[in-house]
C-alpha cells in the first residue's frame, strides 16, 4: 500500500442556501492506494459529495475547496476543466447507483462502450468493438454480442450495472469510484456484481473507493474503512478491525444493525451527540 494513488488534503464542499452556507464536507483528508477503501455514512454524511469532488463534479451552486488533491503526483486542483475531462473516465472512473440514469437511452450499449474507449485512446472502430466485447465478457455477460446491440432499457438492473462497470473499466483507469454501485440491485445479484468488480480491480491493480451506507457490506468487501458523519471523518480503520471500533457513532451504527445470527430483543437506538459535529476530522491518510 506504499504507492499512494490519490491523496486528498483538507477537502471542503459548501452549498450556499437561503439561511447561510451549508458545509456538506468539512475539511477531510484521506488517501487511497492500490486497495479497496470503503466510505460509509448515513444520508447527509457527505460521502457522495466526497466521491464527486475528487473528479471536480460538484454542481453549482456547490463549491469545493481543498489544500490539494494529489493524483499520480499531480494536483488535480491545478488542472483546467479541459485537462479534467481527460482524467475523468480515463484515469479515474465513476460508477453510479442507477445505471438507468448513467446510460444514454437512445444509443446501444455497444456504441456507448466503444465511444468511451475511442474518446480516450486511438483505437479504431474495429479495435473498439473487439475491446468492448472482451470487456463485456470480462464482466461475465454470457452473450456479449447480443448485449452489445441492445439498448439500456432492455437490460435488467444487474446487467445494466455490469455494462456500466465494463464501460468504466475499458479505458483501464487507475482508480474507480463506485458510489452505491449495487444498492438498487437484489442481494444475490448485488454479490455477483461485487465479485466481478472485485476481481477486475484486483487483476488490474487498481484503487477502489467504495461509497455505501451499508456498514456490513463495506466491512466484508473493503480493505480499509472511512466512517463519515456530518461531513467529517469520525473514524478510520482496517475492515477486519471494525468490531474494535471505538467512536461512539461507529459503535452505535454497529449496534443498530439487526443480525441474523445473534437475535436481540431490542435494537440499540443511536444517541446522536452534537459534539460529533464539532470534533476535528480524523486524518485518513496512510
Amino acid at each position: 500500500m506504499s504507492d499512494t494513488l490519490l491523496s486528498v488534503e483538507d477537502l471542503w464542499v459548501r452549498f450556499p442556501t437561503r439561511s447561510g452556507t451549508v458545509d456538506a464536507v468539512r475539511g477531510i483528508s484521506f488517501s487511497v492506494g492500490r486497495e479497496r477503501v470503503g466510505i460509509v455514512g448515513e444520508s447527509g454524511s457527505g460521502k457522495s459529495m466526497t466521491g464527486r469532488s475528487i473528479l471536480r463534479l460538484i454542481r453549482s451552486p456547490g463549491q469545493m475547496e481543498a489544500k490539494s488533491i494529489m493524483f499520480n503526483g499531480e494536483n488535480l486542483l491545478d488542472y483546467s476543466e479541459r485537462q479534467m475531462r481527460k482524467i475523468r473516465g480515463h484515469q479515474i472512473s465513476m460508477v453510479m447507483q442507477d445505471p438507468k440514469f448513467s446510460l444514454n437511452p437512445v444509443h446501444t450499449v455497444g456504441k456507448q462502450i466503444c465511444e468511451a474507449l475511442r474518446l480516450h485512446t486511438k483505437a479504431s472502430r474495429r479495435e473498439a468493438r473487439q475491446g468492448a466485447l472482451e470487456m463485456l465478457e470480462a464482466v461475465q455477460i454470457r452473450n456479449p454480442e447480443r448485449v452489445f446491440d441492445s439498448y439500456p432499457h432492455e437490460l435488467s438492473g444487474g446487467m445494466g450495472q455490469r455494462v456500466m462497470i465494463a464501460m468504466m473499466l475499458i479505458t483501464d483507469p487507475k482508480l474507480l469510484i463506485a458510489d452505491e454501485p449495487t444498492s438498487a440491485l437484489d442481494v444475490t445479484v448485488q454479490m455477483k456484481v461485487l465479485a466481478i468488480m472485485d476481481k477486475l480491480v484486483q487483476e488490474r491493480g487498481m484503487g477502489l473507493i467504495f461509497i455505501s451506507h451499508d456498514l456490513n457490506l463495506v466491512s466484508s468487501f473493503c480493505d480499509r474503512i472511512i466512517i463519515m458523519y456530518a461531513g467529517r471523518i469520525v473514524e478510520t480503520c482496517k475492515a477486519s478491525e471494525l468490531h474494535n471500533a471505538t467512536h461512539p457513532y461507529t459503535r452505535g451504527l454497529l449496534n443498530a444493525l439487526p443480525r441474523i445470527e445473534e437475535p436481540k430483543g431490542r435494537l440499540e437506538a443511536l444517541q446522536r451527540q452534537d459534539s460529533w459535529k464539532q470534533e476535528a476530522s480524523v486524518d485518513a491518510r496512510v
Partner: peptide, 18 residues
Amino acid sequence: QELLKASMGYDAEFFGDS
C-alpha cells in the same frame, strides 16, 4: 441458502467463482 449467504455480507470465495 443463497439469500441468507448474500445478506451475511460479501464473501469472495463464495461469490467470486460463480
